[in-house]
């Protein structure tokens, strides 16, 4: 089973191929928002290097959002095109969960933050649950590097949210647990986080700051195996925010 994953929800354009055993390849660029021009040539280049064809894939995974509305749609339209052309399913992966999965097993809370401008963020609160404890018990043995290890994923303990950064910090303070911040929002609002946080916290390094298709593919393999697949027609990005026009309409008396 092979999955091609696409991540285009923000500044990063990324694609990756994974199967049950490994991330087979990844191509990631964190430079300019030119996804419309770069994404498909990147997929082409990646598949050529892997000596694979897009028709060799069993499913197409998409980092479904939240994020840049336009970026999300470029990724979505691409994945939908693949799925429709080849009659293969789509696996939707929450962008913030994929981002959280960049942090390996930890007992801390993971808070992925995507900058949504003007002190607003798309935020998630994730943690590793029971599986982590199981792995920890086995830490002296081989199981720690086995299949179980690979399948551990961070789970959301609150629905992903679109809020201002200070409110997110307030929510986190309520948990009274140590927090790891990551994502571009962690960098942009670092000083506000430092001001607002009452519990212990730390920031992930640059290697963990961005959403990557490898993480999306990693989660997608698990979702695929659990049967969480949909027809491409049914996939639409998770914007978490209505359009400005709809919000304005709602404000009118």
């Amino acid at each position: 089973m092979r999955i091609l994953a696409i991540e285009a929800s923000g500044m990063v354009a990324s694609c990756a191929v994974a199967d049950e055993n490994a991330i087979i390849g990844e191509f990631t660029i964190n430079n300019k928002k030119t996804h419309s021009q770069t994404l498909l040539p990147m997929v082409d280049e990646l598949l050529k290097r892997l000596e694979m064809k897009v028709s060799d894939m069993d499913a197409f995974a998409i980092s479904k959002g939240p994020g840049s509305f336009t970026g999300l749609r470029i990724g979505s339209a691409t994945v939908k095109g693949f799925a429709l052309a080849l009659d293969k399913p789509v696996v939707e992966v929450p962008t913030l969960q994929a981002l959280a999965a960049d942090i390996a097993q930890t007992e801390k809370l993971i808070c992925p933050l995507i900058d949504a401008r003007n002190e607003n963020v798309f935020a998630g609160i994730y943690s590793y649950k029971n599986e982590f404890a199981k792995i920890k018990d086995d830490v002296s043995g081989d199981a720690g590097t086995g299949t179980e290890f690979q399948n551990v994923i961070p789970e959301s303990i609150e629905p992903d949210m679109a809020l201002d950064i200070r409110t997110v910090c307030g929510k986190l303070n309520g948990y009274g647990r140590e927090v790891i911040f990551l994502g571009d929002g962690a960098k942009v609002y670092r000083s506000i986080i430092e001001e607002e946080m009452k519990t212990k916290y730390c920031f992930a390094g640059n290697n963990n700051l961005m959403p990557r298709a490898a993480s999306c593919a990693f989660l997608a393999v698990r979702y695929y195996n659990e049967g969480h697949i949909i027809k491409g027609d049914l996939h639409a990005p998770e914007y978490l925010k209505k359009s400005q026009a709809e919000r304005n309409l709602g404000k009118q008396p």
């Binding site: 994404l39 498909l40 028709s55 336009t70 749609r73 339209a77 691409t78 939908k80 095109g81 693949f82």
Partner: peptide
């Protein structure tokens, strides 16, 4: 632009696949 991008990205993916 946002509207055009949907058709363009979809058509490109179809043509490629």
């Amino acid at each position: 632009v946002g509207a055009l991008l949907v058709g363009v990205a979809h058509a490109k993916a179809l043509a490629y696949a």
